[in-house]
Amino acid sequence: MDLTNSIGGIEKLNNMNYDYWKSCMELYLQGQDLWEVVCGTDVAPPNNTSEGQDALRKWKIKAGKAMFMLKETIQKEMLDHIRVAKMPKEAWDAFATLFAKTNVARLQMLENEIGSITQDNMTISQYFMKVKGICNDIGQLDDESKISDARK
């Protein structure tokens, strides 16, 4: 693994590794006690009352840490998808939508990826496995979405 493409052992999100990134991030966020502010029971800030000042401060710290990790563990070209997100849950959901099986944008990304693959320094076996992996991803797109078989 190229260290410039990972943070803390988590491979940065790109067009090809959402499922892997998602599982690693979920475990990391749970281990850091940040999952609740991303997709758990604590996704909205507490009320800003005099009694809740400390709770709000703690929530903002957790949300900031979670948002930092979400932004640091993605490739720069992915940043545009979450640039306007104010809450960690918004960012997480934006990626879920972008990489959803029913999403036509996902098919477009896979088409672009398969069209730009070059063998470069890969062995024939590695090159074949990469192409096969993309084809498998295309094959796993939801059949109920409005993507024609010809396009797949």
Rank of each mutant, 00 (worst) to 15 (best):
A105H: 09
I74T: 03
I117R: 08
G31A: 06
I74Y: 09
P88E: 02
N14G: 10
I124P: 11
D42E: 08
E113K: 10
D2I: 13
E90N: 04
E72A: 11
T41D: 12
W92M: 03
K65I: 08
L13I: 08
G40K: 04
F128Q: 10
G40W: 08
M122R: 06
E77M: 00
Y18W: 15
V37D: 02
V104N: 11
D120Q: 13
L98T: 01
W35K: 04
L79S: 01
S125P: 10
M1C: 12
P46E: 00
D142E: 08
E113H: 07
G8Y: 08
I134P: 02
K62W: 00
Q30D: 09
F99H: 05
D142W: 10
I124D: 14
W59H: 03
F99Y: 11
S6A: 09
M1G: 09
L34P: 06
T73W: 03
T102F: 12
H81W: 11
S50Y: 15
K76E: 12
I117A: 05
H81R: 13
N48P: 06
C39L: 12
E111A: 12
I74A: 07
H81L: 15
D19M: 06
Q119F: 03
D54E: 14
S125C: 11
K58D: 06
K86C: 11
I147W: 00
T41C: 07
G64C: 05
L3P: 14
A85T: 05
D2V: 09
K62V: 00
F95T: 07
A55R: 00
M69R: 09
D93V: 10
F95K: 08
A91I: 05
T49I: 01
I7H: 03
S148R: 02
D80G: 11
K130Q: 06
N112C: 02
G31N: 07
N136S: 15
N103S: 05
T4Q: 10
F68K: 14
E26F: 12
K12Q: 00
F128H: 08
M78D: 00
M122S: 03
M25K: 09
M78N: 01
V131F: 11
Q53E: 03
D142C: 12
M78W: 01
R106F: 07
G139Q: 01
Q119L: 05
M67D: 09
M69P: 04
H81S: 14
Q126K: 06
K130L: 06
S50A: 15
S50T: 15
N48T: 02
K60H: 04
M16Y: 14
T97A: 08
F68R: 15
S125K: 13
Q126Y: 08
R83C: 09
K60I: 10
